[in-house]
Design a protein around this nucleic acid. Structure first.
Lengths: 153, 153
DNA sequence: TATCATCTTGAGACGGCTTATCAATTTCAA
DNA sequence: TTGAAATTGATAAGCCGTCTCAAGATGATA
């Protein structure tokens, strides 16, 4: 029973994202392919990935899945509003937008350590600023760069 | 007189950064070269640059200054704490840390309009989060993406 | 369900940005 | 001034992500 609840919850969540994708595809005359479903399912299980990461993860399920397809699909997710791209170091990270609240980062410029955090109060103030300027926020990016305790010594 | 003041102020600021560089060089058995002085002077006049930008700017003063030297030097500035690298799209931006500005952006995903804003309360909360995690912030990036009033209709 | 215009894929070529290589040059401590 | 060590400039190399294009998949339509 507990298991059933957990499963149906995860499933409904995945289905919701799948619907967002389906609508986006329909609106832009694009097609739902086996690869896109496969990549979306794997993507939703994680908070953020790189194309390379997914390439290795999915190699087991589909050894012929190309890296270019993963890049194309992740960019498609960004356009559909399911993912968000972020440039970290030399690579591009794709964040799962549905994991809202865990999108802010504290980045050590010394050792590269990344600490994730969420702060409702900051979110609220962001909304306030947006409203004041006539905007409705879709997503945001907040990165704090500094030195962690260890790197200061 | 007014001119003198402005000049001496700018000069003392540049001298301060030059000292930071000199100390870093001494500490790491590195040498102060004509190129490093030239690049630092130009760098301090701006808020943020790319290696390519500086390459073109400095071509007038020293046509033989190599792009690799500029990359090496800007990275050196980062290690010395004078500059900070940020990855923006495909390029790396080097920010002048002494220009600690409040440059937060509200970006319309519809028409691309960018509204700048600053919010002390958000800054304060950022400091709070950083402190709680043992960090000391050097700089930050906050971007809110959404639709402006006009694009919503 | 068969058709077919259109979209997508996979493999690898390509291109932009940054770093590595190395001989020649410059720096600076002695 | 000398010489060991660092730096430079030119360019090759490397990495990441996108583009190309022939072959294959999709789905609206009949």
């Amino acid at each position: 029973m507990g298991l059933f609840h957990a499963d149906s919850h995860a499933m409904s969540k995945a289905l919701k994202e799948m619907d967002v994708l389906r609508q986006h595809l329909a609106k832009h005359q694009l097609k739902l392919t086996r690869q896109r479903e496969l990549i979306l399912t794997a993507f939703l299980r994680q908070e953020h990935v790189t194309a390379e990461t997914m390439y290795h993860q999915l190699a087991k399920k589909d050894p012929h899945l190309g890296l270019a397809t993963i890049y194309r699909t992740l960019n498609l997710f960004c356009e559909a509003g399911i993912a968000q791209a972020r440039h970290f170091g030399t690579q591009t990270q794709y964040d799962n937008i549905s994991h809202k609240g865990h999108h802010d980062h504290l980045i050590c410029t010394g050792c590269g350590t990344i600490v994730e955090f969420e702060n409702c109060e900051i979110e609220r103030l962001q909304e306030e600023v947006a409203t004041k300027n006539g905007f409705v926020i879709q997503t945001h990016r907040l990165e704090l760069y500094g030195l962690c305790a260890r790197c200061r010594h």
